[in-house]
Design a binder for these strands. Structure first.
Lengths: 232, 232
DNA sequence: ACACATTGTGTATGATTGTTCACTGAAAAA
DNA sequence: TTTTTCAGTGAACAATCATACACAATGTGT
């Protein structure tokens, strides 16, 4: 019995801490759920979140000082969701036939599977709370940088300068997030609309990647006169 | 005096109707102002808007059934702002040297000059209220279509199929709106940051327009294997 | 085994919310 | 001139809000 000095310091420390973590998770999930029902974060009331989570309003303060702090915790959570997306993308075979279309399909499934986190990202990325907005943009920037790094490691676009690669990736991410809001607003059982949307999504990415491929070609000529191929 | 049967039907009818229109405008402006201070639309309280507008809460009901209706009126107003932007863009000389950069500069000024409407568009385009979100996306779609039509009339990208032209324009608009949120969040007196942002903006547009110019070239090849220029 | 620490509850309070109602005063219509 | 219309007011209502405090219950460390 009295063998170790302080036994079970973390070994069996599941009960109380785990319960606390659970209600904390419930609070976070409750906030996400409410936003999934078409509410903006800044319109969420503390009592409302607590009610949805099934705890007394005052229990909220055991976990967060105020709703803003909960919002930042939510940002961290969606950051994890984004990182997981990248990890799954890395598992994909590099350059099989029709890879772009397949990536788009995987992404669409991922968004639909993680509906609430993407609703949160979409609506609060340009949303009311400045603190939240900047925090989310920070996560998105990290996501973009990791994507650029993956491109480098995969040997894609080896001729592209790093700064340009980052810019290309930021365009891809911008397109992905724009597509996410479309996916989220898509009424279910509208296969035709969804197919149209996917096709648009694919073509947009094609344009961006086309630009990345021919980066050094004659992009500079565009600022002079777009549309006419001849002329000095 | 008693010359016409019903005189002053519209001639001097400024007093009452004009006053009503004024307080209505005050309510709309009040809502925009509050959102400019970092609040989402769904978090705005009716009494709060009325207070900011300098009228009694009950006066609100003389103009709107509820806050949602005011939101839709706001969407109409920002639609006008977008149309005005297009009208000013049409006044620009076609194809002077460095036109793209100049367009970007004009757009930046326009966003800064119409801060509140763009804050509204940015935050509510993917925001909480579904009704508002769809209404704004509708306005943005109109804006995109008009832009595509202008491209046609100007003879830009004559070889591009209409559907593709619309897609390109939607990418341009997407980029513009993403840039708008950057512009709005930019701290003042940060010329360096602003210049970097502009440069990014310009390059993103270059990529899109480059894709539009070489649309028929070999975009299809991308889906096979991006990055390697050789190989079958 | 026992004292402590901590998570969650219940109650209370003052402020603010949306909405109703009867009203006022001045512009418009007669 | 007289009457009507109507934008805006102010008081009242029940509901909800954020937050504070004392308290209960229970796992944890000694």
């Amino acid at each position: 019995m009295a063998s170790g000095a302080s036994p079970q310091k973390q070994a069996n420390a599941v009960s109380r801490r785990a319960r606390k973590d659970q209600t904390r998770a419930n609070l976070l999930q409750a906030a996400l759920t409410l936003m999934g029902e078409g509410r903006s974060f800044t319109s969420l009331a503390l009592r409302e979140i607590a009610r949805e989570a099934g705890v007394a309003p005052t229990a909220f303060y055991r976990h967060f000082r105020n709703t803003d702090e909960l919002g930042l915790a939510l940002v961290e959570e969606v950051g994890i969701t984004l990182r997981r997306l990248l990890r799954e993308a890395r598992k994909m075979d590099v350059a099989p036939r029709d890879m772009l279309r397949r990536s788009v399909s995987v992404y669409q499934d991922y968004v639909k599977l993680n509906r609430l986190p993407f609703v949160f990202i979409s609506s609060e990325r340009s949303g009311g709370s400045r603190i939240l907005r900047l925090a989310i943009r920070n996560e998105v920037t990290h996501f973009t940088n990791e994507m650029a790094q993956d491109f480098r490691l995969l040997g894609l676009y080896p001729n592209l300068p790093t700064a340009s690669l980052q810019m290309v990736c930021s365009m891809i991410v911008m397109t992905m997030l724009a597509a996410a809001t479309d996916i989220l607003d898509l009424p279910p059982d509208q296969a035709l609309l969804e197919a149209e949307m996917s096709e648009n999504f694919v073509q947009q990415l094609k344009i961006i990647l086309f630009g990345a491929t021919h980066w050094d070609q004659d992009l500079a000529a565009l600022s002079a006169k777009p549309g006419r191929k001849d002329e000095a």
